[in-house]
C-alpha cells in the first residue's frame, strides 16, 4: 500500500486538459510501478465513457479504473494543478486536486480509501493541499491526520 508518499506527489503541474491531468496522476503511479500502463488508458477511457462523476467534491477529482485494468498495489497519487481545469462537472468544476487512485481488490483498498476520506472530509486539509508549494506542506497535513 502506497498513500501519498513523496514520490507520488507532483505540485503545481501545468496541464491543458482533463485527460492530461488524469494521465499525470496515473503516470505517478506507473513511475513507481504500482500500476501497469494499461491502467492509465483505462482511467482515461472511464472518463470518456462515464463522464466526470469522479469529481467528487469542489476542485477534487479522483480518477481511477478497475483492479483488473492493471493495478499491482493499492495506491494514491496526487497532482495539484497550477491552473484549474474544467472536467465538465455540473457543480464541482474547476479541478485543482487530482488524486490518482490505484484501485486494488485487496483489503488495502479499503484502508487507502478510508485514509483518503478522512483526509478530504476536513475542508481545512483540502485548502492546505491546494496551496501546498512543497512536500513538507503536504507532510504536515498528513501527519495531523495520523
Amino acid at each position: 500500500m502506497k498513500f501519498l508518499e513523496e514520490n507520488l506527489i507532483r505540485l503545481k503541474a501545468e496541464v491543458e486538459t482533463a485527460q492530461e491531468a488524469i494521465e499525470a496522476a496515473g503516470s505517478m503511479l506507473l513511475k513507481e510501478q504500482l500500476v501497469e500502463s494499461t491502467y492509465i488508458n483505462a482511467m482515461v477511457n472511464a472518463y470518456h465513457a462515464n463522464g466526470p462523476y469522479f469529481v467528487l467534491a469542489p476542485h477534487i477529482a479522483i480518477p481511477h479504473a478497475r483492479p483488473e485494468d492493471g493495478v499491482k498495489e493499492a495506491s494514491v497519487s496526487l497532482v495539484t494543478l497550477k491552473e484549474p481545469i474544467k472536467f465538465g462537472h455540473a457543480t464541482n468544476d474547476p479541478v485543482r486536486l487530482v488524486f490518482g487512485l490505484g484501485a486494488s481488490s485487496s483489503e488495502e483498498h479499503l484502508t487507502v480509501l478510508r485514509s483518503l476520506t478522512n483526509l478530504l472530509n476536513d475542508s481545512g486539509n483540502v485548502e492546505g493541499l491546494k496551496n501546498a508549494s512543497c512536500y513538507e506542506d503536504i507532510k504536515t497535513i498528513l501527519e495531523k491526520e495520523r
Binding site: N50, G51, L56, H64, A65, R66, L101, A103
Partner: peptide, 8 residues
C-alpha cells in the same frame, strides 16, 4: 460509474 472507488 465503476463501483470500485467513489461509491465506496
Amino acid at each position: 460509474g465503476l463501483g470500485q472507488g467513489t461509491s465506496l
